[in-house]
Amino acid sequence: MFPIVRCRTLRSLVGCLAAVLFAATAQAGTIYGVNHTQWAINHFSVDGHSAVDIIGAFQGGGGGWGYAPPAQWRPGLTVRVDWETGVAGSKGFPGFADRAKYKAWVAKNEAQKRQHTQLVPVPDYTGQKVCGITVHFLPCDQLQVTTSCYPYGAPEYPIKTPLRLPVPKTCPVK
């Protein structure tokens, strides 16, 4: 809950605003991603809160701040995840000297980018400490999320999916 304070001067008003902002974000946590796919996650966001750009294939990354789930979990709770997949790194980079080769390389990389949006159910966190949100990017553009405070790979971490998943020959039709 927000602190009750009285602000009488400009200096105290600044302090009051800082106290309110701190209280509003005190329950907020980081946004982290775990990429179980062969594609780079160029960027992603959770409910409009941006996370760190580029998580390479079969890697984790994070650093976005400000995701705060509701104080109480409720059935049907979801988050909206927006993300872009593509290639990462400089594989096949021809250099800048030959402009035609460079432009073809850029065009090939751009053609592989895909935009995605998905509503993802948030598992019940009743009675648990919540530490932001972790999004798991799975093959076939599937997602899982958790609000667990444990790091990925810890015995208590709820998602047990291995980091390196095989590339499926086909994906279910959406």
Rank of each mutant, 00 (worst) to 15 (best):
G127W: 02
V106D: 05
L119E: 12
F137S: 06
H116M: 05
Y125P: 05
R74D: 02
T134K: 08
D47M: 04
L143M: 05
H136S: 07
Q112R: 13
I41L: 03
V34D: 01
P94W: 00
D47A: 06
V34R: 01
Q144E: 14
H116W: 15
G48A: 07
V52N: 11
A23Q: 07
P139Y: 04
V52D: 04
G60I: 01
H49P: 00
L143W: 05
N35T: 06
A104Y: 03
G92Q: 03
G29K: 10
K129P: 07
D124T: 01
G61F: 03
S45M: 13
T134V: 10
A107K: 14
G62K: 06
H36G: 10
L17A: 13
A104R: 08
T37S: 07
A24N: 02
A40H: 11
R114I: 14
F137L: 05
R80F: 01
V20C: 08
T30V: 14
P94E: 01
N42T: 11
A107N: 11
N42S: 11
G63M: 10
Q144A: 14
G95N: 00
V34A: 02
P70N: 11
A88R: 08
D53E: 12
G33H: 10
P121N: 02
Q115I: 05
V20H: 09
A51L: 04
G76N: 08
L77T: 01
H136Y: 05
K103F: 10
V87I: 06
F44I: 03
Q72S: 14
P69T: 07
F22P: 00
I31F: 04
K101R: 15
D98N: 15
G89E: 08
L21T: 07
G95A: 07
A19W: 02
A26R: 12
Q72A: 14
G64E: 10
N42I: 12
A51N: 15
T30L: 15
Q59L: 09
T85L: 05
A26P: 00
I41Y: 01
D124Y: 09
F137Q: 06
Q59R: 15
L143P: 05
R114S: 07
C16F: 09
A100H: 09
A104I: 01
S90P: 00
F96P: 00
A18R: 14
G127T: 03
G95F: 00
F137I: 03
V20I: 14
W39N: 15
C140V: 02
S90R: 09
P70R: 11
K129F: 08
T30P: 00
W73V: 08
V106G: 01
A107E: 15
E110I: 13
F58K: 13
F44P: 00
Q27K: 09
R74L: 08
A40I: 02
G62T: 07
G127K: 03
Q128D: 13
G66S: 04
E110W: 10
H49I: 15
V122R: 03
